[in-house]
Design a protein around this nucleic acid. Structure first.
Lengths: 123, 123
DNA sequence: TTAGATGCAAACCCTTTGCTTGATT
DNA sequence: AATCAAGCAAAGGGTTTGCATCTAA
């Protein structure tokens, strides 16, 4: 069975606190400041464990590091091609649209939308 | 300007011929049989070039190698979690659904559907 | 006390790059 | 002849793993 460690606690807190879909390395650097002995391997191991347990989610950006998201409700991701920000967005009726394929039994999906965010479009 | 080489020709042919969304390495091994001097770097370089030119498409599977697809029409991908096969599928009205977000200007998207394919469900 | 977690460094895997040689235009 | 591409090997970057030590239960 799983043990509760200080590392697990601060890593999960960090994903919750850094709401911008951080990479493992960003989480590591963020925590390293106050926890100088923390190791990157521990960050990876725990993120993987949390993801397996369904406590957080991985967000893949093609050709880039894996990112982590503590928001577990139903939402999509928008990747801004100018500034690299990942925004959470909602698309009405998408889940039903995707899971109700006539012949395929789809039980999950990963979607990434691309474009320029509001900020980058107007500045 | 770009030069026409035998390597470019056979690599593009291979992606067209191997319709199962092969990885760079699979393409390399497939071609290596008849072209023993072919190098993996050449395969990668040309696949990237073709993708940039819009002649083929990259298909990302989270946590796996990049795959390549010569089919350029509008379709989605279904990843079978049992056998690893990637199937081409069509989802009616999806493009409009995704590109017509009320506030975001979405100009592209990547979608991967997950489940078990017909084969794996019935055997 | 002991199973499980951490830290560290090394290993891994996929992909890209530097450089010399080779081929196309 | 000039330029671009190929081949090879080495480097790169992100992620995982082996192992000794440490810590929660």
């Amino acid at each position: 069975m799983m043990k509760n460690t200080r590392q697990k606690e601060i890593i999960l807190d960090a994903v919750n606190h850094l709401k911008d879909h951080p990479t493992a390395d960003e989480i590591y650097l963020y925590l390293k400041k106050d926890n100088p002995k923390l190791s990157l391997a521990t960050v990876y191991r725990n993120l993987n464990q949390f993801a397996t347990e369904g406590r957080i989610r991985k967000v893949s950006v093609p050709g880039d590091s894996e990112r982590y998201d503590a928001l577990m409700d139903n939402h999509e991701h928008f990747y801004c091609e100018s500034c690299g920000t990942i925004l959470d967005i909602h698309i009405n009726g998408l889940e039903e649209h995707l899971l109700n394929h006539p012949t395929m039994m789809v039980d999950d999906y990963k979607l990434m939308l691309f474009g320029k965010c509001e900020q980058c479009r107007t500045h």
